[in-house]
Design a protein around this nucleic acid. Sequence first.
DNA 1: GACCAGGCACATC
DNA 2: GATGTGCATGGT
Length: 215
Amino acid sequence: MNKVYEIYKRLLSSLGHQAWWPAETPFEVIIGAILTQNTNWRNVEKAILNLKDSNLISPDSIANCSLATLGKHIKPAGYYNVKAKYLKEFSGRFLQDYGGSIKVLRDLDCMEIREWLLSLKGVGEETADSILLYALNKPVFVVDAYTRRIFLRHSLIDEAASYGNVQEIVEKDFPQDSKILGEFHALLVEVGKHFCKRKNPLCEKCPISDSIFYS
DNA sequence: GACCAGGCACATC
DNA sequence: GATGTGCATGGT
């Protein structure tokens, strides 16, 4: 039996579809992916609203905006000085290397895009994969803190597992389908928020925490 | 007032 | 390679 896929099915039937990623355009997904680093999504929404109100939601406008102004807008998302640099770094390189075109980026080989993303300051593995999956619809799995905590709890990984180890466990037994992989990540975040917090990673009320998973 | 949130870069050993 | 630290706001 495929334990990981079983968890996915359980979560989907108990929590339903998650409608991720909440954004109007692929570029907005990218901005959100950077702003949500180690930050509550509610704070990110405020920052994105500020950017929208000032028409700072395109590569050009961000590249041409001062760090100070950009920082002021994204302040609610925290770490606003570094994140302002990251947004400008992304926008500048995106314009320079791909003309700011999502379509041009999307048409490249997946691994090539990933390497390009990882070459940018402020984009690590999780952010790169979030962009690949939710902005570019590439079939990759996004590993985050909740994924690790939940998988640890169910003995699917050990503490030393690398990002790639965790990702491989999911991808090898899942269909190469961005919709399904995106749904799974969203479900893990949702269940993690309620049942797998840092201080209480062993909550019995979690919808995936019974029977066969402990046999 | 402590704890937490959809990480990452950089210094140091 | 692994471990530690700075980055910061807003909700519970």
